[in-house]
């Protein structure tokens, strides 16, 4: 790790002010589960770390009826074990429980994950399928507009993810097919069904990050059953191909994993 300086703001205003002072040499630090390993491998060398873990505005989960708002500083473990989320939107809580391992879940945060937008991160699939909103210190951005490409989001320099919010659907579930090495998703699918249709968010498989599988959404909106996607083919060209799986294999996974997510949604 290169030498860096550490800063601990206690409010959002202080954090953004620090960020403005330090400019593009600074990075926010949340759980550090992505940033610290990257720094240890000398792939990132921020001169200043602005620790968001003591910023009160980023904490907390609120559930009003079927509306859920999760502060950016909430850990995956808090999401996974929150009784209200579990009762209103069990698929989302279950997803958080599948992230990494216990250590990662107790450190890593929703805000850090969303801001980082790893092509295999789990939350983006859910937020796309749920039509969620990403709240920042400046604005609110719909998930469809927030997630833009590999590690690319709508965030401006120094902008902080303060929360994510969404309304719980009638039925939902997340199914994750893991990369055997990293245990990230090789293909993760979140399905969400509402009266006006079904949305399908896919992570880990797409060549440009998480995406909505529109053919799947159409088919499932007509018939929310696993076999509804049987006749579909997923275009291989849009899939990642790497040492862990070819695009053909991932295209197959998108279908299979979607079917399993639908099946699971019926059992939640």
């Amino acid at each position: 790790m290169y030498e860096t300086s550490y800063h601990r703001p206690s409010s959002l205003a202080e954090a953004t002010q620090l960020a403005a002072e330090k400019g593009d040499e600074a990075k926010y630090l949340s759980g550090g589960m992505t940033l610290i390993p990257t720094m240890k491998q000398r792939l990132a060398a921020p001169e200043a770390l602005i620790d968001l873990r003591h910023v009160g505005e980023l904490k907390g989960i609120s559930v009003n009826g079927r509306s859920i708002r999760i502060g950016g500083g909430t850990t995956h473990a808090e999401v996974a074990t929150n009784e209200e989320i579990k009762s209103v939107c069990p698929g989302f809580a279950a997803l958080a429980g599948l992230i990494g391992d216990p250590a990662v879940r107790h450190m890593g945060t929703v805000g850090g994950s969303v801001a980082n937008f790893d092509p295999a991160a789990d939350y983006p699939a859910a937020l796309l399928a749920l039509g969620g909103t990403i709240h920042t210190d400046k604005r609110e951005i719909p998930a469809d507009e927030f997630f833009q490409g590999l590690f690319e989001t709508a965030l401006d320099e120094g902008e902080i993810v303060t929360a994510v919010s969404f309304d719980a659907p009638d039925q939902c579930a997340y199914e994750k097919f893991r990369n055997p090495a990293s245990r990230y998703a090789m293909c993760g699918v979140f399905v969400a069904k509402r009266a006006d249709g079904v949305k399908v968010g896919v992570t880990g498989a797409g060549a440009s990050g998480a995406f909505r599988w529109s053919d799947g959404e159409q088919a499932l909106s007509g018939n929310f059953a696993p076999e509804a996607v049987d006749g579909l083919t997923v275009p291989e060209g849009d899939m990642v191909s790497d040492i862990h799986g070819s695009s053909a294999y991932r295209a197959n996974l998108v279908k299979v994993v979607t079917k399993r997510a639908v099946k699971k949604a019926h059992s939640h």
């Binding site: 090495a181 990293s182 040492i243 862990h244």
Partner: peptide, 10 residues
């Protein structure tokens, strides 16, 4: 290309 646990499955 498999020089870490992200890519080498133990």
């Amino acid at each position: 290309t498999t020089a870490s646990y992200m890519d080498y499955a133990m």
